[in-house]
Design a protein around this nucleic acid. Structure first.
Length: 413
RNA sequence: GUGGACGUAGCUCAAUGGUAGAGCCCCGGCUUGUGAUGCCGGUGGUUGGGGGUUCGAGUCCCCUCGUCCACCCCA
C-alpha cells in the first residue's frame, strides 16, 4: 500500500481565512435581514436517521437514491449526513413539541452533504443558509418569505439576479395535470432526448426544464401547471403575485420551474444568476404543506428556502481584508515583559494588536509592514524607562513618544 | 455515475525523449533601535502517486488520486 498523500476528501474543501471572510459577509447579511422579519436561529444535528430523508425528500430523488452519505453505525442504526435542512427542521419542530406554539420562524446556517461529482459551485460538503416558517397558511406568508429572500440578496449587493416563481399546484389539481402532461409527452416521445423519455415515467415535470434545445422546441406548447391550477391554488398564486407587486419586488413567472424534492407544493421559486455556469441557482425554495403530516405530525402548512453560501460568496465583490490596528515591536530581552504588557493594554483599549515577537528591529518592521498596519508601537529600554511607547505612522514615517493610554485616541484620529 | 481538459518550487508558469528552470514570495546580508524601492546571496522539487516502453521519461502508454468543465441533478 503506497503512502497516500494526506488531503481532504474529494469535493470537501477547507475554509481558509480569505474564504471564511466572504462566508461571514453572507451570514451577517442573513442574520441582519432575517432578524428584521423576526426569524430566530436554530441549530440542528448534522447526523440524522436516514429514514428521515427517505420519507421526506423522496426515495426516488437523486439526493436520496444516490447522493447521500449513509452508513450503519456501530449500533446498527442507519444514519446519514444531512443532504438538506428542511427535513431535519420539521423533525426538530415536531420533536420539540412546537406544533401548538404558534407560528415558528426559523433560520439555520450549516453544512450539508451530497456525494455528487464536484464542480465549481458544487461541493460534496457545502453550506446552506436555510429558512423555514411553520404554521404559515396563506399567500401573505409566501410573499413575505420571498420578500425576505430578495432583501437578503439585496443586502449582499449582488447584481443581476432574477427571481422566478411558479405554482406546483396541490394534491387536488396536480394529479390531473400530471396525467395531461404525460399524455402530451408520450405523444411526442419519439422527438425527445433519451433522458426525457425516461423522465416521462419517473418525473414528467422534469421534462419541462430539459436543457436540450430540441426538447424545448418540441415542448413549446406543452401544458403548464399554472394553467391547470384548482381555484384555491390559482387564488393563492395570484395573491402571492399581488403581494410581490405591492412590495415592488421584481420577479418573473416561470411555468417551467420544477422542484427536485418531493415535498413541495404550490409556490416554488428560484433566484438565479448567469455568472456561475451550470450552477445558476443561488437560492431556492417553496411551500411544503404536506411534509409535516408526512413525517407524522398534524397537517401544518409551511414554507421555506435555502441559499448556497459558497455560491453567494463567489458572487461577492472583493473587499479589503481586515487589518490589525497596531503592531508591537519589542527591542531587546530586557523589555520582554513590558512589551507584552503594553500589547495587552492596547487590546484592552479596544485595538487589534499583533506582537512582532522580538528579535531584530528590521525583521519586526518587515513583519509589521506585511501585516499592513498603519501604526507600529516601538518598545525599547528607553520607552520602558519613560513608561511610553514610540508610535510610528507607517505611511508618513513620523514617530512620536506617547503614553500607552493615549495610543488608542491617536489611532482613532 | 458518464464524457472531456489539466496536474512541474509556497504561487504563476517554462523545459524538439537527453544535466528540471524563471518570475514572484520567503529567509539572510548591505555595521549598532526602524518597513515598502535598490543591490548581493540563500532555502526550496522523488515533475500528484504507482507501473510500463526506452540506453535515457516532466515529455510516450496504462492505472490511480485530485482539480476544473459539461451531462445528470441541485444550493
Amino acid at each position: 500500500m503506497s503512502a497516500k498523500k494526506l488531503q481532504s476528501i474529494r469535493g470537501i474543501h477547507d475554509g481558509l481565512p480569505v474564504e471564511v471572510a466572504r462566508w461571514q459577509r453572507v451570514e451577517q447579511a442573513a442574520r441582519k435581514v432575517f432578524g428584521g422579519y423576526a426569524f430566530a436561529e436554530v441549530r440542528m444535528p448534522i447526523l440524522e436517521p436516514t429514514e428521515l430523508f427517505v420519507r421526506s425528500v423522496g426515495e426516488d430523488t437523486d439526493i436520496v437514491s444516490k447522493e447521500m452519505y449513509a452508513f450503519t453505525d456501530q449500533g446498527g442504526d442507519n444514519i446519514c449526513l444531512r443532504p438538506e435542512g428542511t427535513a431535519g427542521a420539521v423533525r426538530a419542530w415536531l420533536q420539540g413539541g412546537l406544533t401548538r406554539a404558534g407560528a415558528q420562524r426559523w433560520y439555520y446556517i450549516g453544512p450539508m452533504f451530497r456525494r455528487e461529482r464536484p464542480q465549481k459551485g458544487r461541493l460534496r460538503q457545502f453550506q446552506q443558509i436555510g429558512v423555514e416558517m411553520f404554521s404559515a397558511p396563506g399567500p401573505v406568508e409566501d410573499a413575505e418569505v420571498l420578500a425576505m429572500a430578495h432583501a437578503f440578496l439585496c443586502e449582499l449587493g449582488i447584481p443581476d439576479l432574477t427571481m422566478e416563481i411558479n405554482s406546483l399546484g396541490c394534491d387536488a389539481c396536480r394529479p390531473a395535470y400530471r396525467e395531461r402532461l404525460v399524455t402530451y409527452l408520450q405523444a411526442r416521445a419519439a422527438c425527445l432526448c433519451e433522458t426525457c423519455v425516461e423522465r416521462i415515467a419517473r418525473n414528467p415535470m422534469r421534462v419541462l426544464d430539459c436543457k436540450v434545445a430540441s426538447c424545448q422546441q418540441e415542448l413549446a406548447d406543452a401544458p403548464e401547471m399554472v394553467c391547470h391550477l384548482c381555484d384555491e391554488c390559482d387564488t393563492h398564486f395570484t395573491t402571492v403575485q399581488k403581494g410581490l407587486d405591492a412590495l415592488q419586488i421584481p420577479y418573473r413567472v416561470n411555468p417551467r420551474i420544477v422542484r427536485g424534492l418531493d415535498y413541495y407544493n404550490r409556490t416554488a421559486f428560484e433566484i438565479v444568476t448567469d455568472k456561475l455556469g451550470a450552477q445558476g441557482t443561488v437560492l431556492a425554495g417553496g411551500r411544503y404543506d404536506g411534509l409535516v403530516q408526512e413525517l407524522g405530525g398534524p397537517a401544518t402548512p409551511a414554507i421555506g428556502f435555502a441559499a448556497g453560501i459558497e455560491r453567494l460568496a463567489m458572487l461577492l465583490e472583493d473587499t479589503d481584508a481586515a487589518v490589525p490596528d497596531v503592531a508591537v515591536v519589542a527591542l531587546g530581552e530586557a523589555v520582554h515583559g513590558y512589551a507584552l504588557a503594553q500589547a495587552d493594554l492596547l487590546r484592552k483599549a479596544g485595538l487589534s494588536v499583533v506582537h512582532c515577537g522580538g528579535g531584530s528591529a528590521k525583521r519586526q518592521f518587515k513583519m509589521a509592514d506585511r501585516e499592513c498596519v498603519r501604526f507600529v508601537a516601538v518598545i525599547g529600554e528607553d520607552e520602558m524607562q519613560a513608561a511610553t511607547v514610540m508610535l510610528k505612522n507607517m505611511a508618513s514615517g513620523e514617530q512620536q513618544s506617547v503614553a500607552t493610554a493615549a495610543v488608542a485616541a491617536l489611532i482613532a484620529a
